[in-house]
Computed example of a mutant assay.
Amino acid sequence: MKKVLCIGELLIDLVSTDGETYIRKPGGAPANVAVAISKLGGKSFFLGQVGNDNFGKYLKSVLIDNNVNTTYMKEEGQTTLALVTLDKNGERSFDFYRGSDENYNLEVNELDINDECIIHFGSAIAFLDKNNTENYYKLLKKGREKEALISFDPNYRETLITNDLIESYKENCWNFIKEADFIKLSDEEAMLLTGKDSLEEAVLLLKSLNLNCVAITLGKEGTMVIQNSNSTIVESIKIKQKDSTGAGDAFVGGVLYKLSIYSENIDYIDVVGFANVVGAITCEEYGAIPSIPTIEKVNMRIKSSKN
């Protein structure tokens, strides 16, 4: 089984369904992915920084309780906060209050990376500051040198990626997309990054780029898998959605868990079918990390969906 290194933010989601009362939940895309991998039975590491405060201590305990390795995690300053407001359909809007995650100092030479590793880059805020951008590129370079499998999720957030940042954000995303073995996009991200006005046009461009594997999540419609010039829609399961927070991260965690146990001849249709179920189940409860299912729950749902 390959180990998976997840770099990026770990933060507090303050979640509200009425805009008045907020409930504390652990969050942050790469941390959600790391927990998903671990809950499914994989080996995950979190690389990032939280504050040396009560929020930070709580978040570190959440990772430890979920068997995520925190060897490369640091605690200093104040923890980043995200206010998450849900509408009646469980869809989200965000407001961010940035903390010390932007000061994370990655000592890349201390990492044990080889061809039995997966490195996941999946942060909404990695390209917003010089320090974390440098961390990402250093780790990408090391990963490619050591022939690790590279995963990338741009995690676009309109609240964060303002008009003056959008071009540099897109440039950085494309640099990682070109190097990645697996790329996860939403339909919105696919159109944003390709500069196309429709998903159909975006898909045509992505097909022409000879990328290893791109997965475009389509909500209840499932996931489109693009490999070279071919595309396939992989269906999901039917659920009653409460909260979509963390669903995309849980999906990525499902993909990376499956990739970690593949030795060769990866079947991405099988991988994505499994990950669709992981992401769907996560939508059935509130909050990201607490809602991510165990491997037993996923296998039970897959079995029941076939009956």
Rank of each mutant, 00 (worst) to 15 (best):
L128V: 04
D153H: 01
S123K: 01
L111P: 02
N155G: 10
Y58D: 13
N155L: 05
K74H: 10
T85D: 01
L59K: 01
K138H: 10
L63R: 06
L63P: 08
R92K: 03
V84Q: 03
Y136V: 06
A126I: 13
D101E: 15
E145Q: 02
N67F: 01
S61N: 15
E147C: 12
I119H: 00
E75C: 08
K141T: 15
F96V: 01
E147W: 15
Y72R: 07
Y72C: 08
L63C: 11
K88G: 10
E110S: 15
A148N: 06
D95C: 05
E102I: 07
V68S: 05
L111M: 07
E91L: 01
A148V: 05
G143R: 03
I64A: 08
L140N: 04
K146E: 10
L86F: 00
I113C: 06
N67G: 06
L59V: 07
M73C: 07
L140Q: 00
F152Y: 14
K142C: 00
G90K: 00
K130R: 13
G99R: 03
E116V: 08
L81P: 02
P154M: 03
Y136H: 07
L128E: 07
Y137R: 11
T85P: 01
I150Q: 02
T133M: 10
N103I: 09
G99D: 11
L140Y: 06
D129S: 09
H120R: 00
S123F: 10
Y104A: 14
V108M: 14
N67L: 08
L83H: 02
F96H: 02
D95F: 02
L63S: 07
G90R: 01
Y72W: 11
A148Q: 08
L106F: 10
F96R: 01
Y72F: 13
E116W: 03
C117W: 00
R98G: 07
E75T: 11
E107K: 14
